Computed example of a mutant assay.
Amino acid sequence: MNKPITEQSSHYDNLENKSTGELLRDINKEDQSVPLAVEKIIPNIEKLLEVVVEKMKKGGRLFYIGAGTSGRLGVLDASEVPPTFGVSGDWVIGLIAGGDTALRNAVENAEDNTEQAWLDLQQFHISEKDVLVGIAASGTTPYVIGGIKKAREQGIATGCITCNTNSPLGNAAEFPVECVVGPEFVTGSTRMKAGTAQKLILNMISTGAMIRMGRVKGNKMVDMQLSNKKLVNRGVKMIMEELGVSEERAGKLLQEYGSVRKVIVVYGKS
């Protein structure tokens, strides 16, 4: 049986004998191939994103499920959507095998349970209104495959992000995204190139969806949550640029309305 691409031997060997500079240059060389691999599969990402937007416009949600690095990346992406785009925390939901404990620590055998993902999803009353995306570099994670298969049986739109071709996960999902980045610098360490590819694709899906849902104006995050001084200052600058007012005036308007978008709607030309 052929090894999955993500498990094939690194193109590099005797890593322990390399200098620090050699290690860094070789890792960087490998990393440069990742965005090119993502570029090749943009049509597949587009198909999945269109489904996400279609469902969201009808009140649906986007769910991610994964284990290990893949699960952490899904939770990370989901957690950054509310503060960036000012939406509620139930628009994009990330679940990881083993629960929140697994965000910091490995949970033994959590990813091997084919039934648990669906049980986890039931807590959020997932339905055919929603979209479920399974994330697994190998495309063989039982937790993820089980969740995708069960969701598809229930008429829920399913996608996946994997870094192997013709994987069980890719075959189970309706809208597979298979990004082949080749063997890892450290053999089998999919937290590296595969994880980077997954992060890039997740960025595209969540950001694309939020833009299509009207949560960006021009190129500005006008709905961002003003949760610290840096973001307040950013909001002030947005208002200054949009309305052509002084920093003092922009600050007062932002304080009064509590939202960049609200200020622009009330005082903007469009």
Rank of each mutant, 00 (worst) to 15 (best):
M1I: 00
S10D: 12
Y12G: 05
K18S: 11
S19D: 01
L23Y: 02
N28M: 07
K29P: 02
S33H: 15
P35G: 09
P35V: 08
P35S: 06
E46L: 09
K47H: 11
L49C: 12
E50S: 11
E50R: 15
V51R: 11
V51I: 13
E54C: 04
R61C: 02
L62P: 08
F63S: 11
S70K: 05
L73F: 09
A78I: 12
V81Y: 12
V81W: 15
P83I: 09
V87H: 13
I93F: 07
G94R: 06
N105W: 09
A106K: 04
V107Y: 05
E108C: 04
E111K: 03
N113D: 15
L119T: 11
D120F: 07
L121M: 08
Q122P: 00
F124Q: 04
H125V: 02
H125K: 09
E128C: 08
E128Y: 05
K129P: 00
D130F: 00
L132S: 03
I135F: 00
S138A: 06
T140A: 14
T140H: 08
P142Q: 05
Y143A: 06
V144Y: 01
G146M: 08
G147W: 01
K150I: 11
A151L: 09
A157V: 13
T158H: 09
I161Q: 03
I161M: 15
T162Q: 14
T165P: 06
G170V: 04
A172R: 03
A172D: 14
F175K: 13
P176A: 07
V177W: 08
E178T: 10
P183D: 08
P183A: 13
E184T: 14
S189V: 04
K193A: 00
A194G: 05
A194N: 07
A197N: 00
K199N: 02
L202M: 10
L202F: 00
T207A: 12
T207K: 10
A209S: 15
M210V: 07
G214P: 10
R215E: 09
N219S: 12
V222C: 09
D223H: 14
M224R: 01
L226I: 10
L226S: 06
N228E: 10
L231T: 05
E241A: 02
L243T: 02
V245S: 05
S246I: 12
E247N: 15
E256I: 00
R261Y: 01
K262Y: 00
I264D: 02
I264Q: 00
V266D: 10
G268M: 03
K269S: 13
